[in-house]
Design a protein around this nucleic acid. Structure first.
Lengths: 136, 136
DNA sequence: TCCGCACTTTACGTTAACGTAAACTTGCGG
DNA sequence: CCGCAAGTTTACGTTAACGTAAAGTGCGGA
C-alpha cells in the first residue's frame, strides 16, 4: 500500500512549477526518479525532496545548498566517525544560518509594524479629500 | 554632531562587500549618495539603507524587493489616501511572506534537530575504529 | 614634480536558475 | 489508422547580481 507514484506533470501542477524545472533539478543532481522506459516515475520520497527544495527556495537557499540539506537528511551509509563529525558540523552551520535568518525576520517584522503604524497615523491625519464615509 | 560621512571604500570594508556592489546598487536605484565632484559621499542614512539591502539578501530577497522595502520605510510625501491604502497592502504582503518564512524556518530547525540526533546516535553505535579516547 | 592610492566610468564576462523552441516518441480514444 | 496530449532530448536564450579588466581623474606626500 501507499505504492502511489507521480508523473512529472502531476508534480508540476501540484507544486506549481514547470516540468522544465523538475528536469533541471534532476540535472543538478537533486532528484533521480525511476524510469519506465523513457518516462520518469516519481515516488512519494521524490515528492518530499521536491518540497524540501521549494522550501529552501523560499528561504533564499541555492540549489546547491538545498542539495546539501537533502544529503544531511540522507546520511547514505557512509557512517564513519570522521564523516559523522563533518555532518554534525554542517548541521550546526545550517542551524546557525537559520538562527541569523530568524533574527533578521524578527527585526524586519518590527520595522514593518512601525511602518504600518506610521502609515495608519498618516491616513488619519491626512488629506480628507478621498474620504469615502467612515467616521461613526 | 554626527555629521559623519563615509567613502565608498569605508562602507565596502565595514559591510564586507565590494565597491562594485555598492555602485551596482546605486545603478539599480537603491542608493543615491551625494557627490563631492566625482566622488560619492555616503551619509549614515545611506549606510542604513545598505544594511537593509544586505539583510534582505540574507533572507533571499531580490534587489527589487529590497527597494520596495526601503520605499515602504520612506513614504516620500506622496501621502494621499489611495497611496496609503496601497502601502498598507504591500506591508501586509511582506508581513505575510515573513510569516511563511518563519514557519519554514521552524520546520527546518526541527528537521535539522532530528538529523542531528540521528547523527549522534550513529556516532555512538558506529565503527569504533576512530575512537580517540573518551569513555569515562 | 612625480608617485601611488583611492576614486571614477565604461564595458564585456560569468553564474545560477530556469524559459523557450524544435523535433521526436508513445499511449490511447474515436 | 489518426491525431492529440503528455512525455522525452537537445540546445540556445534570458535575467539577476555582480566580477573583472581597462583607462582615466584627483590629491597628499617624498
Amino acid at each position: 500500500m501507499s505504492k502511489k507514484t507521480y508523473s512529472i506533470g502531476e508534480l508540476a501542477r501540484e507544486l506549481d512549477i514547470t516540468t522544465r524545472t523538475i528536469r533541471f533539478y534532476e540535472d543538478m543532481g537533486l532528484l533521480s526518479p525511476e524510469r519506465r522506459g523513457q518516462t520518469r516515475i516519481y515516488t512519494p520520497a521524490d515528492r518530499v525532496r521536491l518540497k524540501l527544495i521549494l522550501r529552501g527556495k523560499r528561504l533564499g537557499f541555492s540549489l546547491a545548498e538545498s542539495r546539501e540539506l537533502i544529503e544531511l537528511y540522507n546520511p547514505d551509509t557512509d557512517n564513519n566517525q570522521t564523516q559523522l563529525k563533518a555532518l554534525l558540523g554542517k548541521i550546526a552551520e545550517k542551524k546557525a544560518q537559520l538562527m541569523r535568518q530568524l533574527h533578521d525576520i524578527e527585526v524586519m517584522q518590527i520595522e514593518l509594524d512601525e511602518a504600518e503604524r506610521r502609515c495608519q497615523d498618516a491616513m488619519r491625519t491626512a488629506d480628507p479629500s478621498t474620504l469615502s464615509g467612515e467616521s461613526a
